[in-house]
Computed example of a mutant assay.
Amino acid sequence: MTSTRKSDTILTHAGRKPRANHGIVNPPVYHASTILFPTVAALEDVGKPFETYRYGRQGTPTSDAFEEAVSAMEGGHRAIAVESGLAAITGALTAFLKAGDHLLMVDSVYGPTRIFCDKVLKRFGVETTYYDPLIGGGIAELIREETRVVFMESPGSHTFEVQDVPAIVEAARARGVVTMIDNTWATPLFFRPFDHGVDISLHAATKYMVGHSDAMMGVIAARTEAHFITAKTGTYQLGHCAGPDDLYLAQRGLRTMAVRLRHHQDAALKVAEWLQGRPEVSRVLHPALPDDPGHALWKRDFTGSSGLFGVILNPASKPAVDALLDGMELFAMGYSWGGYESLIIPTHPEKIRSATTWKAEGPTLRLHIGLEDVDDLIDDLARGLERLNRAAAA
Rank of each mutant, 00 (worst) to 15 (best):
A65C: 12
E350K: 10
S354P: 00
S213G: 06
R255A: 13
V25E: 15
G327A: 10
F190L: 04
T62R: 01
L247W: 02
L202R: 07
V70M: 15
K48C: 05
P27V: 07
A81V: 05
H368M: 11
V321Q: 02
H13C: 06
G211V: 07
G137Q: 04
L142I: 02
G75Q: 07
F228E: 05
D64E: 13
M73T: 00
F116T: 02
T184C: 08
T129C: 02
R260D: 12
T206R: 10
A360E: 12
R252V: 13
L381R: 06
N26C: 09
E146A: 12
E350W: 07
T159A: 11
E146F: 01
D246T: 13
V25T: 13
K270G: 00
R390L: 15
Q58H: 10
I89F: 09
G137V: 01
A215W: 04
I344H: 06
D132V: 06
R144N: 08
E329T: 15
E386C: 01
T62M: 08
F96Y: 09
I229Y: 11
A258V: 08
I181E: 00
R255P: 04
D101A: 02
D118C: 09
S154N: 10
L285P: 00
A72T: 09
D291W: 05
G176C: 05
V70L: 15
D118R: 14
D322C: 00
T60Y: 00
R383L: 11
A320T: 08
P193R: 05
A267F: 08
R78P: 00
F37H: 15
L247Y: 03
N21Y: 15
V281L: 08
L261I: 14
D64T: 09
D199E: 12
A32Q: 14
G85Y: 02
V149D: 04
